[in-house]
Amino acid sequence: MIDQRATDFERAYSLHLRAITAYVARRVPRDEVDDVVAKVFVVAWRRFDEVPTPPEDRLWLFGVARRCVAHHLRSSLRQGRLRMRLVNEISVVQVPPSHNVDHRVELVLMAMDRLKPLDREALRIVLWDELSHTEAAVVMDCSVNAFELRYRRARNSVRHAVENLTTNVAGKESSSFANTALFVEGQAP
């Protein structure tokens, strides 16, 4: 019985480790990723009786990961946990635009930083974590309609912000921005 449980868990762990690690790594500082990923799978192991059968287990794990990330970032305990690692105690930020890079990517990140947390999450979960809108709605605990509205609002905000930022920077620096920043309306996945 226990052996079967361990076997089934190991299969789920092997199958979803990369996706869950990527999800966590996009949301918490690099040196804290391992801790949070471990917590996600510890929760899964302890509650494995409640985990849906494949392929629904993937969404269940994303839901746990979302709560673990939120808890990690939110918890008043975070303060001490942040300090307990001896090395690699780092977070990662992007350097402001420099030459020889696609500036629009940096502008996108700047625009996303300005979104409301849930709007930003809507873009990340679809475009980075590659969940469908229906799946994302489940993980974010809202209706598909509500998610669609949030997603479109976030996407349009980023598009407009990037266009404005591009115009401003191009006006000041007369760089190559001006020729590369025309966007068309994206299509929902």
């Binding site: 990369r18 690690t21 990527a22 790594a25 996009r26 990140l109 994206g186």
Partner: peptide, 28 residues
């Protein structure tokens, strides 16, 4: 040049998927 904003957001993903651990690694 015309791009779709979604493509640009995808390219802004900070994670290198090829650098992610697999079950085969010692740490995993």
């Amino acid at each position: 040049m015309t791009v779709i904003i979604e493509d640009l957001i995808r390219r802004a993903d900070p994670i290198d998927l090829f650098g992610l651990p697999t079950i085969d690694t010692v740490s995993s």
